[in-house]
């Protein structure tokens, strides 16, 4: 499992408690044949506050399982997950899925206001907040459209606004741009980077697209095939910056591809 050279350990920021920390997490499922299926194996991972962490790996490497564990939707078979004492999973978390991430019986405006509605915010206030988010994600004029009337890209814009409207401390995203075409995907990546820059949200983003993982991340976690293990953690702040060279990007791309292959 040694990945000498690439395994850039995240520098221990002294005194900083990570927002989420996974310690020796194993996850087993009972498969249809009644035999245990191992999804995650000894995963150790720290997600620092305000960071943008992408998890990249082949499909079936337990990436979604990892998100569900962090979201508290699953309990790990063994190992534990530690949250920052100020992180309240019930109020500080949002989760964007690849599909079915909007409520089809609600308009764009009401979908975006949904999280605030659950928190009991008065109607006028939450609609005002939702309208601001509509502007930020560039959906002006579609307030009263239903999800089925939107393109795939617009739907995911709505989903991002819906998630960020509650100002979550932690945002989980499970291949949110997986079904979009390349142009739309690139556009939305930029929207997401800008929105995170202006907020205090930490993002944990799962993708199988290496390009996307590099573009978005401060830090990339590379996962192995089944059972999912952490192969490498790569700090990429420098590569994300505007003045990165194409060579840096390409080198990293090839390294990650060879790791996953």
């Amino acid at each position: 499992m040694s990945t000498s050279g690439l395994d850039t350990q995240y520098p221990s920021q002294t005194g900083q408690i990570p927002l989420v920390q996974l310690i020796g997490v194993h996850q087993q499922f009972l498969s249809h044949h009644g035999r245990d299926f191992e999804a995650l194996q000894d995963v150790c991972l720290a997600i620092p506050a305000h960071s943008f962490v992408t998890i990249v790996g082949a499909s079936g490497s337990g990436k979604t399982t990892l998100l569900n564990l962090v979201a508290g939707l699953l309990q790990p078979t063994s190992g534990r997950i530690q949250y920052h004492p100020k992180l309240n999973l019930k109020t500080d978390l949002a989760y964007v899925f690849q599909h079915y991430t909007l409520l089809p019986w609600r308009t764009v405006l009401k979908n975006i206001a949904f999280g605030l509605e659950l928190r009991g915010m008065p109607r006028q206030q939450r609609f005002a907040a939702a309208r601001q988010w509509i502007e930020r994600v560039g959906l002006q004029g579609f307030e009263n459209a239903y999800p089925h009337e939107l393109s795939g890209g617009m739907r995911q814009r709505t989903a991002i606004a819906q998630a960020l409207a509650i100002q979550p401390k932690l945002l989980l995203m499970d291949e949110p741009f997986g079904s979009l075409d390349d142009n739309t995907r690139t556009e939305l990546q930029q929207v997401l980077i800008q929105l995170q820059a202006g907020s205090k949200t930490t993002i944990l983003f799962v993708t199988h697209n290496i390009d996307e993982a590099i573009t978005l991340a401060d830090r990339i976690v590379v996962f192995s095939k089944t059972p999912g293990r952490v192969l490498a953690q790569i700090q990429t702040d420098s590569i994300k910056s505007e003045n990165r060279t194409d060579k840096e990007f390409t080198d990293l791309f090839i390294k990650i591809r060879n790791l996953i292959a």
Partner: peptide, 29 residues
């Protein structure tokens, strides 16, 4: 009711009552 709709509400902090009124009921309509 599609599981994702329930998960969406749960992760956004919905109570059991809210999941019934705001998810199960409109989804079953």
């Amino acid at each position: 009711v599609r599981q994702n709709f329930i998960l969406l509400a749960r992760t956004l902090g919905a109570s059991k009552g809210q999941i019934f009124y705001k998810i199960a009921l409109p989804a079953a309509l």
